[in-house]
Simulated assay, not measured.
Amino acid sequence: MHPTIRHLAGLASLLVMGSAHAVAISYTDFSDLSAFQQNGSTAAIADPTVDNLGRSVLRLTNSTSQSGSAFLTNTISLANNASFSTAFSFRISNPLGISDADGQGADGIVFVVQTVSNTAGGVGGGIGYTGIGNSLGVEFDTWMNGSGFNDPDGNHVGINLGGAFNGPTASVATRMNDGDDWYAWVDYNGATNVIELRLAMDAVRPSDALVSRTADLAAVLGTTDAYIGFTSGTGAAGGYHDIVSWQFVDDFQPIGGNNNVPEPATLALLGLGIVGIASMRKRG
């Protein structure tokens, strides 16, 4: 049985949304990671990982001096000018090692759209993202590494391209590695070339983006078939970097606004999921 189909029998689901080609992915927990390619330090972390709240999470790093990533093994076909919408919750806890100005814990999480699944980027300030070319990386950075990493401070977000920290940033007042759940929404409208990031401490989608950037994502990627997932990195400071839940739509359909992605309720959606798989392609 295809691993993504198996997810439909659990809490992770794939279903058709809207148009005939659209695929939606929904993880309400990560008890089954068989659809993921795990790389670097992430591959060495036992599956499933249960946090201290009893939830099965996707843990990317769990100590110092690590670099890891997890990407869906199958590519997503971003056929509509590479448009997509995604929403996820994450938790950064158990800070370790040395401290910067706002305390222990490093270095953060990056949501990544890229063209090669079996890779993890730089450790420490690289947050598992640096060096991953042909990519979009939306960072949630919890360590001050200075101007060489385009860091305005030790607690900020940013939108980056090409495996480098080179985009606009916005500072976040509350420490993201405070052990609480955080909620993020990333949308790319291929018709306008605008990428937007929203961030909140609850599950209510903010009306305004915290940071945005204009880019031709299809040109950046060089293809409309892309891998999606997350990276993390730690250095002399570290901690637990967990993805708690995740939704993704391969079109511009902002999640949590007027176009909510419904949660599948029963196995009656299995047939729809099989149709959706047709638009996912696997690379060897």
Rank of each mutant, 00 (worst) to 15 (best):
Y129C: 07
E139L: 10
T142V: 12
S171G: 15
V157G: 06
N134W: 04
G154D: 14
N150P: 11
L161V: 12
V138M: 11
N155L: 12
G133E: 05
W143S: 08
V172G: 07
P168V: 11
D151Y: 05
N145E: 08
G163E: 00
A170Q: 04
S171V: 14
T169I: 15
G162V: 01
A164G: 15
P168Q: 14
F165C: 13
F149Y: 13
A170L: 13
G163L: 01
F165Y: 13
E139C: 11
I159H: 12
Y129A: 09
P152R: 01
G133L: 05
H156K: 13
I132A: 00
G163N: 06
V157I: 05
P152I: 10
F140I: 08
V172M: 09
N134G: 08
H156G: 13
N145L: 07
S147Y: 05
D151V: 06
G154I: 04
E139W: 06
T169F: 11
G133D: 05
S147A: 15
T142E: 05
F140N: 06
N166R: 11
G162N: 15
T169M: 06
F140W: 08
G148L: 03
N134M: 03
L161N: 01
N145Q: 11
G128I: 02
G131A: 00
I127M: 15
D141Y: 05
T130L: 09
N155F: 10
S171D: 14
T169L: 14
P152Y: 10
P152C: 04
G131H: 00
E139I: 10
D151A: 13
S147G: 10
F149M: 09
L161T: 15
I127P: 07
D153K: 14
F149H: 02
S135V: 04
V172I: 15
T130N: 12
N160P: 12
G158R: 03
G146K: 04
P152E: 10
G154W: 06
N166G: 14
S147T: 14
D151Q: 09
P152L: 06
L136A: 10
M144L: 13
G162T: 09
P168Y: 06
M144E: 11
S147F: 08
D141I: 03
T169W: 11
I132N: 00
G128F: 02
G163P: 11
G154Q: 05
D151K: 09
G146E: 01
E139M: 10
D141N: 14
P168T: 14
G128E: 02
N150S: 01
I132L: 00
S135K: 10
I127K: 09
G146A: 02
G137E: 07
N166V: 12
T142S: 09
M144K: 13
F140G: 05
N160V: 04
G131S: 02
P152H: 11
G137M: 02
A170E: 13
L136R: 09
G158A: 08
G146C: 03
Y129S: 03
F149Q: 12
I127E: 07
A170I: 09
G137H: 06
Y129I: 03
G167T: 03
G133V: 03
T130P: 02
G137V: 04
I127C: 08
G163M: 03
T169R: 15
N145K: 11
W143L: 09
V138Q: 08
N145H: 12
G154T: 09
T142Y: 04
